[in-house]
């Protein structure tokens, strides 16, 4: 995502700490808003029977996004802090472990890059085993076993159960 990290210097008033990363979100909204507006500007008039021009909605959406970006930046500057999402397995007291997230992202990137060639059965098994490993599992053989079983089961389940043939990739003819 294009999170432009606008690390605006925080006014050192010392009393309230600011969530600087939130400026990044504001920047992201600004970029999206401008992209929507530029795209809208490139649209031509609709047909004669089209009372709502194709660019009408985009102009509104883009303009509001830019406005929201400004409001969020102001709110952040005034000390607005988000209440992070809590959950059963979420431990907010420990800080954030972004390394794990990046590794999981890489696993998904590998999946995206190879799925057309290798097919779901192989890539799915890799996805499961690699994610489990990244998330802290240390039983490699078991992970790969479960991953393979899951991907084969889902492949055959979709094929015969739901009647959806998922492309088999290199295993075409084997499965």
């Amino acid at each position: 995502m294009t999170t432009t990290e606008t690390t605006t210097p925080v006014a050192p008033d010392g009393t309230t700490r600011k969530d600087v990363a939130q400026y990044g979100l504001a920047g992201f909204l600004l970029v999206v808003g401008i992209v929507v507006l530029i795209d809208a500007a490139g649209l031509s008039d609709g047909f004669a029977d089209q009372p709502v021009q194709p660019y009408a909605f985009p102009y509104v959406v883009g303009a509001v996004l830019v406005l929201l970006s400004g409001l969020l930046a102001v709110a952040t500057w005034r000390g607005d802090v988000p209440e992070e999402d809590d959950g059963e397995d979420v431990d907010l007291t420990q800080g954030s472990d972004w390394a794990t997230v990046i590794k999981l992202g890489l696993v998904l990137v590998i999946v995206i890059a190879t799925i057309d060639f290798l097919g779901w059965a192989i890539v799915g098994a890799f996805l499961f085993a690699a994610s489990a490993r990244v998330l802290g599992s240390r039983t490699l053989i078991l992970d790969v076993g479960i991953g393979t079983a899951l991907s084969l089961l889902t492949w055959y389940g979709f094929y015969s159960g739901l009647g959806i043939p998922i492309p088999a990739g290199v295993l075409d003819g084997v499965l």
Binding site: D85, V90, D91, Q94, S96, T100, L104, V134
Partner: peptide, 11 residues
Amino acid sequence: EALWVAAHLRS
């Protein structure tokens, strides 16, 4: 959700 939990996995 999965990525968010992964970043804050309870131990």
